[in-house]
Write a protein that binds this DNA or RNA. Structure first.
Lengths: 192, 192
DNA sequence: ATCGATTGTCTAGCAGTGCTAGGATCGCTT
DNA sequence: AAGCGATCCTAGCACTGCTAGACAATCGAT
């Protein structure tokens, strides 16, 4: 029994190592640099080992995305809890979201930009993703306004943040105006 | 002279053929299916011919993106011109934008999602891209509100639309609520 | 302790990718 | 009509994700 346990533990450790290494490699040199060969070399195993843990590269990206979703949800909740009043909470939420996207661009890509094959917006959606959406909803529900469905409002607010995050990172928006954009967005969307 | 002219014309024709074929291939089977081999086969030339027109695949994507930007700018202006009043114009603009993204998903990807190597938000930005942004700005300036920079407002509005477009297409948002989302967005962002 | 089986891992290779060097072939100019 | 340039294609490189099959280490049972 104990032998089997150790093996399973070692396997789990190696799986975590794969995901962590994939994330590091991506953050250092971009997802294009995350090839099965390079990844295998970094973890000091051969490529086929990767396929004994994941069905393919997509699943590795998905694993990074799920870790990222959990981390983002936590970061959002921390930011919100440090703010007083609905308006301040929403502003803190928006800043924390954009900050996360900026600090972890490749993880953000794994979550929303790359094809990870993850299900969204239905019952098969993995828990971390639903929880990240919940973290947004918690703070946004109170500023949605009367008669506006909180979920719908959260979707719109989220989409706006997502647009700002992706367009900024792609060089489509001038980085120096990031702050006034956030304020304008919160100003208009959130009913204080 | 005339011979040279004909040659140049034929070259230009072939270049248009390449771009059009790339777009068709992408819209039919996705950008992953647009390989240099398949593209070359479709235009009935060998792969190296592609490289006598474009430096690489990225430039081909960029060419599709520029065509797309021109088409989008035109579509937006048509939609806006058919509406009466600032509020109706903005709603029409938003619907037209999302409609374009939904009807031409791969062209939209070429414009904003894929790495086309195109410059944005600076003086090197190609004309069609600047013009597409201008088409947005024309209708949005009148609803930005006093003391709000129209360019900044346009960036925020655009980002929101972009977020809705990409998240919807990625299956992150329920398609059936598209219309109420647009109305909510216009309702809040645009100062009628 | 030793055998056999099972589990785990690696080597080697497939088909496909973007891109390019080199030679062959075509068509224009003289 | 002949030679010369521009044009195009064949062949190939280094790389990708992924997999079959050989090999070795480890395990349980005797």
């Amino acid at each position: 029994m104990s032998v089997q346990d150790r093996k399973e533990r070692e396997r789990a450790d190696r799986e975590r190592l794969i995901v962590a290494t994939a994330r590091e490699l991506a953050e250092q040199h971009g997802w294009d640099a995350v090839t099965t060969r390079r990844l295998a070399e970094r973890i000091e195993y051969s490529q086929p080992v990767l396929y004994s843990h994941f069905r393919g590269k997509r699943e590795i990206i998905a694993a990074v995305a799920l870790e990222g979703a959990a981390a983002m949800a936590a970061a959002l909740r921390v930011a919100v809890s440090a703010a007083d009043g609905p308006r301040a909470r929403v502003t803190a939420l928006a800043r924390a979201y954009l900050d996360f996207a900026e600090r972890n661009p490749m993880v953000y890509d794994a979550m929303f930009q790359l094809d990870s094959g993850l299900a969204f917006a239905n019952e098969d959606t993995p828990e971390p993703l639903k929880d990240a959406f919940a973290a947004l909803l918690e703070s946004l529900a109170e500023v949605a306004g009367d008669g506006v469905h909180p979920g719908l409002f959260t979707e719109v607010f989220w989409a706006s943040l997502h647009g700002l995050a992706t367009l900024t990172r792609a060089g489509r928006l001038l980085p120096e105006d990031a702050e006034p954009r956030v304020e304008l967005l919160v100003d208009r969307l959130a009913l204080v």
